[in-house]
Design a protein around this nucleic acid. Structure first.
Lengths: 125, 125
DNA sequence: AGGGGCCGTTTACGGTTGTAATCCGAGTGT
DNA sequence: ACACTCGGATTACAACCGTAAACGGCCCCT
């Protein structure tokens, strides 16, 4: 999919809408406005831009719009992850993984899960 | 340390200088210019901006400057990683780790290393 | 001494981002 | 009908970014 650039602030909006959709501008504002100290217009601008970028769409719902994602979160995560991996860890996933493994506090369950994934990785190679 | 924003393109310059320092503008251009299709002036601009941002410094070396990092790579990696983690993975390291574990091709050695880190993680908890 | 080069500095310019205020049309209460 | 309000659309504006040309000084060759 054509990958548009989603900015820091816009990610918050997208994350919300990936979580629950569709939402009206009001609902987005209610969910994110205060938390970020965003003015009403600020959120409206972001919704507008996201629509223009093609990652959100809106449907007329009576007098107002409801917004929903047009792109899958997984795709955006993939793109953003690739870019980050390349920029900060020279494209070396092992380095990235080591970094986050070392700097994160993980629960026993999480560690177990990660081990399991590693096992599967191993099988595949 | 006060965290300045290092842009995509600037990361490449910083990565080079973290790798070997100090370097003249010429050396930076030699290393990155062609690879990125950057004009000489482009690289000069980036060096200039990085100095202004306080992440690079220069020392007069005869008639020209040599540039070196003023901030530690580890600090920038930490900041950038935090921001990425928060933006894309809702601040959940386990989710991030799972993602990269699943989508990366890892060698047997790398997998072994990561296991070892996981073991240490476990001990600490 | 004059012309090139090389090098750092300044200026340029369009696009993106954060952050909003303002505008305008439609529905609503009186 | 008329003022008011709510919601989307338009306009604003500074900082940052990618990308680079133009400028001005210093050193070297002829």
């Amino acid at each position: 999919m054509a990958t548009v650039q989603i900015s820091e602030a816009e990610w918050q909006v997208m994350n919300l809408l990936w979580h629950q959709q569709p939402l009206t501008a009001q609902e987005v504002i209610a969910a994110l406005g205060e938390k970020n100290g965003w003015a009403v217009s600020t959120v409206k601008t972001m919704l507008h831009r996201l629509v223009k970028k093609g990652v959100l769409r809106f449907d007329q719902q009576g007098t107002r719009y409801v917004y929903s994602p047009r792109v899958r979160r997984a795709d955006c995560v993939r793109d953003e992850s690739r870019s980050f991996l390349k920029r900060v860890f020279a494209g070396e996933p092992a380095t990235l993984l080591a970094h986050f493994l070392k700097t994160s506090r993980l629960s026993a369950d999480e560690i177990a899960d990660l081990r399991r994934i590693l096992d599967q990785q191993e099988e595949r190679s």
